[in-house]
């Protein structure tokens, strides 16, 4: 794809005005908002299982209107700072996919699973705020959602290329577009003033060894994405498991033995969220 086409694609991607989501979580949040006794923490926990709703609150709280762009990286903090009225407004204005629900369910499961996996990895690596790593995991495939909404024809081509040539989704994106969802994530993160570490987690999870400023978070998401694919929890758009980069383990000073422990832990935690179906 030529540079011109790339910047055209970028413009279309960034024009995204209203990202739809899946109905299940939206309904749950709506019910919580109607309950005066529901706490912000409860609402944050539910919003934190939906990549689109999470992206929306983080975009809002990091908008220059609030005066501290690029500072807030967790849903919990975003909710405290936005307040219940703004949350209500976001929820009211969010629509649900009228098409392609089936295709999206797998991606939603994959994202929430990846968030959980990133949390496990971050804790094992001894990081103080695993929550931020979860968010990066939750949003690591957001570019795929935005692509499907803004450029449905190209997205269809990618899906077909995955099938016909037995490629990973990421490889197929690059074959069709010349770049992947990691690039789209970087555009979105910049445009929405998301914190720089979150941006690197979202945009370097396929090449963590190249992350310039926040290699830790890129490595965590890389490993989280790998682990959740090993579990075959949800679907990132293909049924493959990408190669685990040894640099990522080295970056976090994790050994193969640690990875096994994380797998056990993740297995237990996944059982708890297994009833989270997005249909």
């Amino acid at each position: 794809m030529t540079e011109d086409l790339k910047s055209e694609t970028r413009d279309v991607v960034l024009e995204v005005k209203s990202l739809p989501t899946l109905p299940k979580v939206l309904d749950k949040v709506t019910a919580l908002l109607e309950n005066p006794d529901a706490s912000m923490d409860e609402i944050a926990r539910v919003i934190g299982t939906d990549q689109v709703l999470s992206a929306k609150v983080l975009k809002m709280v990091n908008s220059p209107i609030y005066g501290f762009p690029g500072r807030i990286g967790t849903v919990q903090h975003a909710l405290v700072l936005l307040g219940i009225n703004v949350i209500r407004g976001i929820i009211i204005s969010t629509s649900v996919f009228d098409m392609m629900v089936k295709a999206m369910e797998g991606l939603w499961e994959h994202s929430v699973g990846c968030a959980l996996a990133c949390n496990c990895v971050a804790r094992k690596a001894g990081f103080k705020d695993p929550e931020e790593y979860s968010v990066a995991g939750l949003l690591h495939d957001l570019g795929k959602v935005v692509m499907a909404v803004q450029l449905p024809e190209l997205e269809q081509q990618v899906v077909e290329t995955v099938k016909s040539r037995d490629l990973t989704y990421f490889e197929a994106e690059r074959a069709v577009l010349g770049f992947g969802h990691d690039r789209i994530n970087a555009w979105l993160a910049d445009n929405w003033h998301l914190p720089p570490n979150l941006k690197e987690g979202m945009s370097y999870h396929h090449k963590p060894q190249l992350a310039p400023l926040y290699p830790d978070i890129a490595a965590v998401v890389h490993i989280g994405d790998f682990l959740i694919r090993v579990f075959e929890f949800g679907s990132g758009g293909d049924d493959q498991v990408h190669a685990l980069r040894p640099e990522a383990l080295k970056q976090l000073k994790l050994k193969t033995q640690d990875l096994e422990e994380i797998l056990d832990q993740l297995g237990r935690e996944l059982v708890e969220v297994a009833d989270l179906n997005f249909a």
Partner: peptide, 16 residues
């Protein structure tokens, strides 16, 4: 930035 953040925290917690 910190002053704006603090204001939001206080307002939203009190409105809670």
């Amino acid at each position: 930035e910190v002053l704006l953040m603090t204001a939001r925290v206080i307002v939203n917690i009190i409105r809670g």
